[in-house]
Amino acid sequence: MTHLYDIVKFGIYALMAFSVLAAILAVTVRNLFHAALCFAAVLIGIAGVFLSLHADFLAMVQILIYVGAVMTLVIFAIMLTERFGDNSSPQNNSLTLAAFGLAIVSLIAFSTISVKTRWPIQENAGALHLSVGELAYALLNTYVLPFEVISVLLITTLIGAVIIAKKDRVS
């Protein structure tokens, strides 16, 4: 069975590399529509990573909400605001070099932190599978308050977004 684990492990690392590459493309590609598509690829990659962490309900929710809904929103916004001719203007401003330097520095800093510190790893670390029932139990018992607050927040966002984006009635 070890060969199978190796194949699966290699698959996951490939998925991670694919998502990082897609993320880099999503940030640097000039044409915004392609950037949004690369971002969708990153989301699906991350859903795959969630699957590797045995969080399959979360992976499905991620695909459903992010790729299904948020991407639709982003692409609608891109379509409504993109004037055909102007995607030739350089997408990045003068900060590029400074931002790149900051990025590299912070990357190194975070990585050393995450590698150096000894995290309190549980012994049955990767083995436990979480059933949807336990998840629901946690969501509706221990975390019921944030659950209700989130629903209120979503309603207000819904109404707020409609009001902001509504064409004001020509009186």
Binding site: V27, N92, L102, A103
Partner: peptide, 13 residues
């Protein structure tokens, strides 16, 4: 991903 996100946020017009 985090670093790429920050880079993108700073750089995108």
């Amino acid at each position: 991903l985090f670093v790429i996100g920050i880079f993108g946020a700073l750089v995108r017009r």
